[in-house]
C-alpha cells in the first residue's frame, strides 16, 4: 500500500470515481462513477491507464495535493487554472512529480468537474466491483465519503500501457450553454403539446440545488400530465423527470434506480458526459432527436473514440 499524495485542501467536494457499478440497478444500487466519463477516460489515457481507472473527481476546483512519492498524474475536465509548485499546467498532459511537489487547482472557470488521474489509478474500498464513491450510501472511495484535508491518496496497481496524445476533438467541450439531445421518455406522449413545446423551446437555468444525483432546472414550468399517480419505475442517468412543481429534473450518475415522476425525455448517450459538466447558473437547451439519429451519432462518435480509448463504453 503506497501513499502517493496527501490532501492539503479538498475543495467543495472531491471524491474517488471510476466508471461506476454498472448492472446493479436491480439491487437499488445506483451507477455512480465519473459524472463526465469522457473526461475521466481521457485523463487516464494521457497516462496510459485503462480508461476506467479510478481517479479523483473534484467539483469546481480548489483541491490542493502534496505528493509523497514519485509518480505521474494528468488533469482533465473543467477549465481551471492549475499549477505544480506555481508552474502552470495544461490539461491532458502527463506530469511527473516527486515527493514534496504540490498540485494546486484554482477555481473551475467553465464546467463543473475536474479529474485528476494518477499513474496506476487510485485504490479505494470496493463495493460490487467498483470503488466509485456514492455519498448517500457511503460506498466506495475513502470510507464512502468525500475527501478532507489530511486524507491520504493510496496508489492503485493497475497496469500502465501506452500513453495517448489526447486529441482536442474528443474532449468534453466546456461551456456555460449546453445543448442536449434527447429521445422521448416513456411518458412523453402523456404530456400536452404545450408542455412538450415548453421543454424544447426555452433555455432552462441550472439551479443551485444540484449534485451528482441530478440537476433541477428552472424556467417556465412544465405542466405535469393528467395521469393517476405513477407506480415507481426505472430511471437512469440522463432521464428527465417532471415533478409536480413543473421544474424538470435531469438525472446524473448517482440517479436513484426507481422514480415516481413522469419521464418526459432521455438524453442520448453521447451527450451524457456534457450533463456532468453543467454548473449552477448555466443555461440548458433540450433538443429532440430520433432513436435512429441517436444511434448514428453514437456509432460515429464511438468510431473516433475507439482509436484513443479502446473498450470505452457509454455508462
Amino acid at each position: 500500500m503506497t501513499i502517493v499524495a496527501r490532501v492539503i485542501l479538498s475543495g467543495p467536494q472531491t471524491t474517488v470515481q471510476d466508471a461506476g457499478r454498472g448492472g446493479m440497478r436491480h439491487l437499488g444500487v445506483p451507477l455512480s462513477g465519473a459524472a463526465d466519463q469522457i473526461s475521466l477516460a481521457l485523463s487516464n489515457a494521457a497516462l496510459g491507464n485503462p480508461w476506467d481507472a479510478p481517479a479523483l473527481e473534484c467539483t469546481l476546483g480548489g483541491l490542493v495535493l502534496e505528493f509523497t512519492e514519485q509518480t505521474e498524474f494528468a488533469l482533465g475536465g473543467a477549465e481551471m487554472t492549475a499549477a505544480l509548485n506555481d508552474t502552470p499546467l495544461s490539461l491532458y498532459d502527463p506530469i511527473s512529480v516527486s515527493a514534496g511537489d504540490r498540485l494546486k487547482l484554482g477555481q473551475a472557470r467553465v464546467g463543473m468537474r475536474c479529474y485528476i488521474a494518477i499513474a496506476g489509478g487510485i485504490a479505494g474500498s470496493d463495493f460490487l466491483g467498483s470503488v466509485s464513491t456514492h455519498l448517500p450510501a457511503r460506498l466506495g472511495g475513502v470510507d464512502g465519503r468525500a475527501l478532507s484535508a489530511g486524507d491520504h491518496i493510496i496508489a492503485g496497481s493497475l497496469q500502465i500501457g501506452q500513453t495517448v496524445d489526447v486529441p482536442t476533438y474528443l474532449r468534453t467541450t466546456m461551456s456555460h450553454d449546453w445543448f442536449l439531445r434527447t429521445l422521448p421518455g416513456p411518458e412523453y406522449e402523456n404530456f400536452s403539446d404545450e408542455a412538450r413545446r415548453c421543454l424544447f423551446s426555452q433555455n432552462f437555468s441550472a439551479d443551485r440545488r444540484g449534485d451528482r444525483m441530478g440537476i433541477r432546472l428552472s424556467g417556465k414550468t412544465i405542466e405535469p400530465p393528467d395521469l393517476p399517480p405513477m407506480k415507481s419505475s426505472a430511471v437512469f442517468p440522463g432521464t428527465i423527470q417532471c415533478p409536480p412543481d413543473g421544474a424538470p429534473f435531469l438525472l446524473l450518475s448517482d440517479a436513484q434506480t426507481l422514480g415516481g415522476y413522469p419521464r418526459i425525455a432521455q438524453l442520448i448517450d453521447a451527450d451524457l458526459p456534457l450533463a456532468g459538466q453543467i454548473r449552477p447558473g448555466d443555461r440548458v437547451w433540450f433538443l429532440e432527436t430520433t432513436t435512429e439519429a441517436a444511434r448514428q451519432i453514437t456509432m460515429q462518435r464511438m468510431a473516433y473514440i475507439d482509436a484513443t480509448l479502446p473498450g470505452f463504453k457509454f455508462a
Binding site: H26, K231, S233, A234, F236, L258, T298
Partner: peptide, 22 residues
Amino acid sequence: ITDAIAGIDSIAIRFDNTQLDA
C-alpha cells in the same frame, strides 16, 4: 442485457448495443 430493473408494474431493460440489436 446489461440491466433488468423491476418496478411495481414494469420491467426496464438496457442492452449493450455493440452486441445486441434493439
